[in-house]
Amino acid sequence: MKKATLLLIFAVLAMSSSMAAEKAAATFRTAKGEKIQVIINNKVINHQPKKIVKVQGGGGLLDVKIKVYKPNKTITFRDHLDITPGFKSDFTVVKLGSKNAAIEKTGITRMYNNHYRRPESIYNRRYYSIVSESDMNTLMNRMNRAYTDQSRLLVARNGIGDKKITTYDVNEILASLEYEDSKLKFAKWAYKRTLDQKQYEDIYGAFQYRTSIMELDRFIYG
């Protein structure tokens, strides 16, 4: 009995340790696409205002301040946001009524571990040529240095070519694109190159509008 109890305690501690080790990610934007600055727990994330701000770290209940830069003024919003470990959460500053606005969670996507991100051990390499971890990192760095979505799309397509990718890779690339139509174009292009097509719904959280998801569904399922 004592041995069983110790095993149970060990299992709980191992599970807790695993959950604590999981990273969290978050993306911030406004519904109208204004440039913003994000401050989390009094730490400035981006000194240069951007339309989309991406963060990766520990997660939890965080004190988030977002400065929205409009043509004639700057508006600041502040809230305590729950950023779940193991997931990428999308937050959008949305307008409520004529004068008020709020930071809303508009999407959440599971962040897979490397076993799912790079499933070389699952798929037979004789039949699949998969974009490697290092190639994917190089591709993302090149995309981050590009100034326009058109350039980012070109970098992504050239970097992948005829190789296979996973939904995890697709999500990473979509997060680096700024505009909805660019994301939709890439999602359509990437579908036939994706190994785990049954998990393609995992990318839906990258889209801001339901109509984009509906159009993607029509493209895939007819």
Score class of each variant (00 low, 15 high):
residue 2 K to G: 04
residue 4 A to M: 08
residue 5 T to W: 04
residue 8 L to C: 07
residue 10 F to L: 15
residue 12 V to W: 01
residue 14 A to H: 04
residue 16 S to R: 07
residue 16 S to C: 06
residue 18 S to N: 12
residue 22 E to K: 15
residue 26 A to P: 09
residue 29 R to Y: 11
residue 29 R to L: 09
residue 30 T to Q: 03
residue 31 A to Q: 15
residue 32 K to H: 14
residue 33 G to M: 11
residue 35 K to P: 02
residue 35 K to I: 05
residue 36 I to N: 03
residue 38 V to D: 08
residue 38 V to R: 08
residue 42 N to T: 10
residue 44 V to P: 04
residue 45 I to E: 07
residue 46 N to W: 03
residue 49 P to D: 08
residue 49 P to T: 11
residue 50 K to Q: 14
residue 52 I to Q: 13
residue 54 K to V: 14
residue 55 V to Q: 04
residue 55 V to K: 05
residue 57 G to Q: 05
residue 61 L to S: 14
residue 62 L to T: 08
residue 64 V to Y: 08
residue 64 V to R: 07
residue 66 I to L: 08
residue 68 V to D: 04
residue 71 P to K: 07
residue 71 P to S: 06
residue 72 N to L: 09
residue 75 I to T: 15
residue 78 R to T: 14
residue 80 H to E: 13
residue 81 L to H: 09
residue 84 T to Y: 05
residue 84 T to F: 01
residue 85 P to S: 02
residue 86 G to I: 05
residue 88 K to S: 11
residue 88 K to C: 11
residue 88 K to F: 00
residue 91 F to C: 03
residue 91 F to D: 02
residue 91 F to S: 02
residue 93 V to D: 04
residue 93 V to M: 11
residue 94 V to H: 03
residue 94 V to L: 07
residue 95 K to Q: 15
residue 99 K to A: 09
residue 101 A to G: 15
residue 101 A to T: 12
residue 102 A to S: 14
residue 105 K to A: 08
residue 109 T to C: 07
residue 114 N to K: 03
residue 114 N to L: 01
residue 116 Y to D: 02
residue 122 I to Q: 02
residue 123 Y to G: 01
residue 127 Y to M: 10
residue 128 Y to P: 08
residue 129 S to Q: 13
residue 130 I to W: 02
residue 136 M to N: 11
residue 138 T to H: 08
residue 142 R to W: 03
residue 142 R to C: 00
residue 143 M to F: 04
residue 143 M to G: 04
residue 143 M to H: 06
residue 144 N to Q: 14
residue 145 R to Q: 14
residue 146 A to E: 10
residue 151 S to L: 11
residue 151 S to Y: 10
residue 155 V to H: 02
residue 155 V to Y: 09
residue 156 A to M: 09
residue 157 R to F: 01
residue 158 N to H: 11
residue 159 G to F: 03
residue 161 G to F: 02
residue 163 K to V: 05
residue 164 K to L: 06
residue 165 I to F: 07
residue 166 T to S: 02
residue 167 T to I: 11
residue 168 Y to P: 02
residue 169 D to V: 11
residue 169 D to F: 11
residue 170 V to I: 09
residue 170 V to A: 08
residue 171 N to P: 00
residue 173 I to Q: 06
residue 174 L to D: 08
residue 174 L to V: 12
residue 175 A to E: 15
residue 177 L to A: 04
residue 178 E to P: 05
residue 182 S to G: 11
residue 184 L to E: 13
residue 187 A to L: 07
residue 187 A to Q: 07
residue 188 K to E: 12
residue 188 K to H: 01
residue 191 Y to T: 13
residue 193 R to T: 04
residue 194 T to V: 05
residue 196 D to V: 07
residue 198 K to G: 12
residue 198 K to S: 14
residue 198 K to V: 12
residue 199 Q to R: 13
residue 199 Q to S: 12
residue 200 Y to C: 05
residue 201 E to K: 14
residue 201 E to M: 09
residue 203 I to R: 10
residue 203 I to F: 05
residue 204 Y to L: 01
residue 206 A to N: 15
residue 210 R to S: 12
residue 212 S to M: 02
residue 213 I to Y: 04
residue 215 E to P: 00
residue 218 R to T: 14
residue 218 R to N: 14
residue 219 F to M: 08
residue 221 Y to C: 00
residue 221 Y to V: 06
residue 222 G to C: 00
